[in-house]
Design a protein around this nucleic acid. Sequence first.
DNA 1: CTACGTTCTGCAAACGATTGACAGGAATGT
DNA 2: ACATTCCTGTCAATCGTTTGCAGAACGTAG
Lengths: 334, 334
Amino acid sequence: MTKSSVTSTDVAKLANVSQSAVSRTFTPGASVSGKTRERVLAAAKELGYRPNVLARSLISGRSRIIGLVIAYLENHFYPIVIEKLSRSLQARGYHVLLFMTEPGQQDEVIQEILQYQVDGVVLASVTLSSHIAQECAGLGVPVVLFNRYVPDTQASSVVSDNVSGGRMLAELLIKEGHNNIAFIAGQENSSTNVEREQGFNEALAAAGLQVSQRAVGYYTFEGATIAAREILDQAVPDAIFVANDHMAFAVMDVIRGEYGLRIPEDISVVGYDDVPEAGWPSYNLTTVEQPVEKMIADTVEILLEQMEHKQVSPTRRVTEAGLMLRGSTKSSLA
Amino acid sequence: MTKSSVTSTDVAKLANVSQSAVSRTFTPGASVSGKTRERVLAAAKELGYRPNVLARSLISGRSRIIGLVIAYLENHFYPIVIEKLSRSLQARGYHVLLFMTEPGQQDEVIQEILQYQVDGVVLASVTLSSHIAQECAGLGVPVVLFNRYVPDTQASSVVSDNVSGGRMLAELLIKEGHNNIAFIAGQENSSTNVEREQGFNEALAAAGLQVSQRAVGYYTFEGATIAAREILDQAVPDAIFVANDHMAFAVMDVIRGEYGLRIPEDISVVGYDDVPEAGWPSYNLTTVEQPVEKMIADTVEILLEQMEHKQVSPTRRVTEAGLMLRGSTKSSLA
DNA sequence: CTACGTTCTGCAAACGATTGACAGGAATGT
DNA sequence: ACATTCCTGTCAATCGTTTGCAGAACGTAG
């Protein structure tokens, strides 16, 4: 912290005005005469005065800090979320206090966050217990679950339509004539995995089909590598739906590198998220695009709205996702 | 912020002690009798008391917040840095306030950061003007440039030995018998690029060689794609050194996808950083490993040391980098 | 020149903690 | 029994702001 920092009182002294006058010149919309303002500004500049946000927060009751809790950045989807969220909030005068957490520790982490008197909280790739949600709500601190959904909670939720996304992928694979389709799951109990799988299965069922093989990849590269081997060792399906892109890359590497099969000639692979790597030529993965921009916009909107009124009401925003057709499915051969 | 938050006074009232007693029970190393502490703790628990970090910071003069400034997360090296740095600081009771910046805007951003009374600042993929460095130093706020080096500044610097890394790559390529070697640069004026290129060129020169072609990729995937085409359209070298892994992936995709050449049979490719993707089978890229763990440890150490004494002295830590031999160079064929 | 409505300005009380100074009581020694 | 020491706990000042209140200053109209 500042060793010998300049305070508003110092500025006031130099400018020959009261300390309140200094405060007022730095408070947009306060009444100060042009002359005073000018004198204060000059003095402030001379001394290099910088208002102390902490002191301001203490009295104003708003810190302009948003706590962001994230479990892992391995999946490139999340760094993008961090970047866009942070930029968007910065543009509105808010800043992001970052908390990495082990899954399962979110509740403790939130307690820690609250000590910083954050104005709002965003949880990405993480959920929270309902009693903590309750507590935040009671404090007037809005909480947004990003890309997760928990029913019956005080927290808001911003997601894309994972059910419909799963359905679209199934329909694509069916249309391409696949009938021996495997699924590699992410985290069994995450809402993203549950919903994507549900949509996928529903669409298969509607066509009188069902998944022929299933393995779990835990949303990690390693896990997906193992899951892919598990499936391929048993029997070679003609298509695999992998619950996210990050795992899909591992699966593609196993298919081509270890089993010498071609994509999509021998097996089609589809993923979910549309992270930048999905567009890289080596993978060129057909996937579902999660509309990050829109989801961030929704998140920020919910936060701002609820912070302004210091009144939280659980809101749910679902954005439509879109199919991103690339080269890992048969259609691309036509 | 808290609508009706519980203060130490509330706790004091309930526990029938003075407010100072409450403060003391929450201050490690303060003298309170077991009985009082117990009463306070009980009352605190009952009310759900949570010390207000902002108020504490205001008076104690330390916020336990570290400002982290980063320009972009496209290169997966930086998300890893964020994650590890954040975890390491959290373990020591510090937290990261994140600032995304456009390159060139760091100085304004730092001004903003200082308003939060941060105890320290880390700049990754970014440098700062010397007068801002001076200012931070004057305030007793240590600044660490992560993966960047600027001579003659008040800021500390944590880097790996990029010159030696570049040299190692050149020596490897020479040993493999290459003599028609191209280089794709990152940002022309970044210390990483300058040093890697310097080491590389020195080693080539020592063997009586020099780079045959050179293009600039600006450390972006797109830029590297274009740079690769530029080089390959002109003449096909027998090896390419790409200034970081992120760009190397683009280059490999162009080589294989657009020119139908094999790696490493037709061209060897080497990168720099050893991000996780470099180990993915599709790329399997020979590269130089930046010892992130060590660099983070150094960063945290410097920060803690200087924050404790509120006394900054520019320090430079250079970690040795190691060659990570994989399949994108000829040695792997042996 | 007075009166009155606007701006401005300064005073002082918060905000929620930490911490040094001090006082009361228990514990100890003689 | 009295003095001395050692703990504990309380009081009150302080950190750097914001902001309600009330008075000062100013301009304008009558």
